[in-house]
Design a protein around this nucleic acid. Structure first.
Length: 925
RNA sequence: GGGCCUGUAGCUCAGUUGGCUAGAGCACACGACUGAUAAUCGUGAGGUCGGUGGUUCGAGCCCACCCAGGCCCA
């Protein structure tokens, strides 16, 4: 007789191999056909809301691994919240305006770009953005991210564009919006401002000059050594043409400066640069004084050739890399000069027109092109005796990417949102303290930025964006930025899209009878600048959260990469505080960046880029999701073939545990076969206790968004507690007991509960696999695990004393398995069931073992285990450390039962089944 | 150069207020099983806790400096 048929061996159709690259797309199809997301929304009705607001990726190109990380994290958070009893909608979004799209469209147009109108250009940009939204949407959905993919928010949608214009109107109304000046990269040849991306750096020859700025007053009172001497601060510059715009000279606040007597006058330079300075001007100098820059703060020097003063200021941007440590400062022609000028209240002075020529009222250089003016400035300096040295240098200099000509930095009229008006900075800082930053240091990071940032420049000289809805008087040029009118325009945008700005006459936007406040005339031009795209996405709380019925502001969470402290977190905070007086988020979670296996950043040129598409093709989305969960996202994350291979092996382990349990509960019906915990054998209660601990750990980890802890907990549970211990011990009971026996049903109840709970807990991460297992689980349940809840805590399953007893037993078991291993090496046994063990223990261990005496054999998975007072023979295994434990392993006595493979000394006594042990006889009957 | 952050076995992570012979899983080596089988079980070998100096009876944990790496600025 073949007794194998009388055993209850595992049976399941659930495949061992995930085959995820093939299976996942099928599941996606099924989710779509069954309207899974709709069912999730249905299930969420009436529950408290949890709003995770999606930061919009830019609608350009395919998704990269960083996108995948971000969206998967969001999806894990959301699924976690849904399974915790919240209604957690997910409305994905895209950032659709802006330069990169415009540039790409221009590039695609080639030479035709000059022939088309702004309106046509914008139409092409719109199409381009839509194309990549569709591409990225498919790529995101493939990752298993559930949400309103059919109705995402797009910043190019009419309603969104209207909202952008409306938020700008609010800033206009409360006075936060103003027009000011700021230097920008300017191409004099094209007559246009350039964005950073449109600037190319190339070698260029420039004059290099050292210029004296004579101190206005005698310095004797401050620095006695200089009393009665003519003293000058010396600056170095490679743009002589900016000298007519000079308003100040900057020194470093922490540096020492020196007075050098050269040819009867004193030259002031930084101490650290005095030698190089003297050698460059080819002069001998005598050190006459050393002093702190602070002594000169706010003292006045004379402009070398204009009848005006130049004030000495202190600035951290001054360096000792080159020059003299005294920096010629023209706030209209340099970024750092501009910032210092703003701080010190200097005029942002620009004497240069659109074509790069000095205005007609500029002495000496009127009408001259700036690069031509260089030599004239130098001549002037020679004439007035202010030039110490001139030379020519070749250095990296910005050029226009279009016409390839060198560009200049030039202050132009721009729109700003004031950080001080309405106390925006103060209130934003206060709001930062009301937000939960995860991890905590996010607060320091954004706080420092808001504390120090200049006013927000929101205008861009471009086509693809939402226009700044202001007007200019045709006759006097006065600005008209009226809140009411701007609100009206916003409504028109919502109705028709912002394209109408480029289509309609100004008058069509203005109420009948609008007149200029300055001159009383009634004809206007439209402002042609557009808004910074950070303003677009920054107002999403108004355009999305406030406008959609199922969302609300402030959001519970914003979740983005740590670069967004300067980006979206930042602009959203200012946009919301400036108009609503509060932050748009209650918590902000940030993650690090994805690095290669060595912790280096990915780059195409290095060739260490890992594309999500490749990971999915090779391993499947669940492995990628597991990768996200396994790493501590607060730091940078690493990805490599090795890491993915490890992870996919870990995935297999978890999957196999699921499969094994499924196989063992194939004949189990929870409706009728459930065994109450109280009636279970102790080891089953131990397993229930362990499950309870795991639940606590995992649910806490979800609550605290520490997903890597949950991964390690689940992984450890599957391998240590289950596979290597509980499930291994259970085999005998589950395989050989009668199918419907209490012993077997009890074990099945435990396994069923564990699998049910485990699958729920793992569903936010292993979304595909969990649903696949869910479909195989017995019992009545929701159609998808994604509409189910996390397992409820059942503290009554916890049993601390029992855990303590078993902890010790597990230690003893470890010692026994070492003894078994030695016997195995000596060929005494093969399988552990071939063995009989005799144990000598003392103290508490002995007492404990006595209590377990009947179960020792099954716990050790041996045929016979006995406790003895004395052990003899050579092969006694002695434990190291702790309480003394001695073990002797021998071949088990008796015959091997053909059915359960345990050795028994009574086999053969039954004539009908001469090869079975008594236990199996009972089971077979 | 500045702000914020990170650095524990080959990989991913633990390490509570400073007190352990620094842990776990995976990978690796060896072995067992062939009733979880492209599985499963056991045993074993892996670490001057980025470096140096300091505080302390005692430091992976505290301090200083340095090195390497990341994000954002300049």
């Amino acid at each position: 007789m073949d007794y194998k048929d009388t055993l209850n061996l595992p049976q399941t159709n659930f495949p061992m191999k995930g085959n995820l690259p093939q299976r996942e797309p099928e599941m996606l199809k099924q989710w779509e056909e069954s309207n899974l997301y709709g069912k999730i929304e249905e299930a969420g009705k009436g529950r408290p809301r949890y709003i995770l607001h999606d930061g919009p990726p830019y609608a350009n190109g395919h998704i990269h691994i960083g996108h995948a990380l971000n969206k998967i994290l969001k999806d894990i958070v959301l699924k976690n919240k849904r399974m915790s009893g919240f209604a957690a909608p997910y409305v994905p979004g895209w950032d659709c305006h802006g330069l990169p799209i415009e540039l790409q469209v221009e590039k695609n147009l080639g030479s035709k770009k000059h022939e088309i109108s702004k309106l046509e250009m914008r139409k092409l940009c719109r199409e381009y953005a839509h194309k990549f939204v569709a591409i990225q949407r498919a790529e995101f959905e493939r990752l298993g991210i559930l949400g309103e993919w059919d109705d995402p928010y797009l910043t190019l949608a009419n309603s969104y564009e209207g909202a952008i214009a409306r938020e700008l109107a609010r800033f206009a109304e409360n006075g936060g919006l103003y027009k000011g000046k700021k230097p920008v990269h300017w191409c004099s040849s094209c007559g246009t401002a350039l964005a950073e991306a449109e600037v190319e750096y190339a070698d260029h020859k420039s004059p290099s000059i050292f210029v004296k700025f004579a101190m206005k007053d005698d310095l004797g009172a401050l620095i006695p050594a200089l009393a009665g001497k003519k003293a000058s601060v010396v600056i170095w510059t490679t743009t002589p043409w900016t000298l007519p715009a000079n308003l100040a000279v900057a020194l470093h606040p922490e540096l020492e400066y020196v007075g050098l007597e050269v040819n009867g006058e004193v030259l002031i330079v930084a101490d650290g640069l005095k030698e190089s300075f003297l050698s460059q001007i080819g002069a001998e100098g005598k050190l006459v004084a050393t002093f702190s820059s602070k002594l000169l703060e706010r003292k006045l020097a004379r402009h070398p050739f204009l009848d005006q003063d130049s004030v000495i200021l202190l600035g951290e941007h001054v360096t000792l890399e080159a020059g003299t440590g005294a920096v010629h400062t023209a706030p209209g022609h340099g970024q750092e000069d501009y910032e210092l000028g703003l701080k010190e209240g200097l005029e942002i002075y620009n004497p240069v027109d659109n074509r790069g020529r000095f205005f007609e009222n500029i002495p000496f250089f009127a009408g001259q092109f700036v690069f031509d003016a260089n030599k004239n400035v130098i001549e002037k300096l020679i004439e007035v005796g202010a030039l110490l040295k001139t030379a020519e240098i070749s250095h990296s200099y910005p050029h226009c990417w279009r016409c390839k000509k060198p560009i200049i930095f030039r202050a132009t009229e721009q729109w700003f949102i004031s950080m001080e008006k309405n106390g925006l900075r103060e209130r934003a800082l206060a709001e930062i303290n009301n937000v939960a930053w995860i991890p905590k240091w996010g607060r320091e990071r954004i706080y420092g930025m808001i504390e120090n940032r200049p006013d927000w420049c929101v205008s861009r000289q471009r086509s693809w964006g939402v226009p700044i809805t202001a007007f200019y008087c045709k006759s006097c040029g006065e600005v008209l930025a009226d809140g009411k009118i701007m609100h009206h325009v916003a409504d028109l945008f919502t109705e028709h899209s912002s394209d109408i700005w480029y289509d309609w006459e100004a008058a069509k936007f203005l109420p009948e009878g609008t007149i200029c406040k300055a001159c009383g005339k009634g004809e206007f031009d439209k402002e042609m600048d557009i808004l910074d795209v950070w303003f677009d996405s920054g107002v999403s709380h108004a355009a999305v959260l406030e406008l959609r019925d199922n969302l609300e502001s402030p959001a519970d969470m914003y979740l983005e990469g740590s670069d967004q402290h300067r980006g979206w977190f930042h602009s959203s905070l200012l946009a919301s505080v400036g108009t609503r007086g509060r932050a748009p988020y209650k918590s902000v979670l940030t993650h690090g960046f994805v690095m290669d296996g060595a912790g280096r950043k990915m780059s195409k040129s290095v060739g260490n880029v890992v594309a999500p598409e490749d990971v999915i093709k090779k391993f499947g989305a669940d492995v990628l999701r597991l990768w996200v969960a396994a790493q501590d996202y607060r730091d940078d994350l690493r990805i490599s073939q090795e890491i993915l291979t490890r992870l996919s092996e870990s995935y297999r382990r978890i999957r196999n545990t699921f499969r094994y349990i499924l196989g063992n509960i194939h004949d189990f019906d929870p409706a009728t076969d459930l065994v109450p915990v109280k009636e279970m054998p102790e080891i089953d209660r131990w397993a229930m206790h362990q499950l309870e601990l795991l639940k606590e750990k995992v649910l806490t980890a979800y609550n605290e968004s520490e997903f890597h802890i949950l991964y390690h907990a689940v992984n450890g549970f599957c391998t240590v507690e289950m596979s290597a211990f509980y499930l291994d011990i259970l085999k005998d009971r589950v395989y050989t007991s009668k199918g419907s026996s209490l012993a077997r049903r009890s074990a099945q109840t435990v396994m069923y509960t564990i699998l049910d709970n485990l699958v729920r807990m793992v569903a936010p991460v292993l979304s595909f696999t969990a649903d696949e297992v869910w479909a195989e689980l017995p019992g009545k349940r929701e159609a998808s695990v994604h509409t189910a809840l996390f397992p409820a805590l059942t503290p009554e399953c916890k049993d601390a004393p029992l855990e303590g007893r078993w902890e010790k037993m597990i230690k003893v078991r470890g010692e026994v398995s070492k003894a078994l291993e030695l016997a195995r090496v000596k060929k005494v046994i093969g399988h552990s069931l071939d063995a009989a063990v005799a144990i000598k223990a003392s103290g508490e261990t002995a007492d404990l073992l006595k209590e377990f005496v009947g179960e020792l054999a099954s716990i050790f998975i041996v045929s016979k285990a006995e406790l003895v007072e004395e052990l003899s023979g050579e092969d006694v295994y002695r434990s190291e450390g702790g309480e003394a434990l001695e073990v002797v392993v021998t071949a088990a006595p008796g015959e091997k039962c053909e059915r359960c493979w345990c050795y028994d000394e009574t086999i053969g006594q039954n004539t009908e089944h001469p090869t079975l042990c008594p236990k199996c006889l009972a089971a077979v009957e």
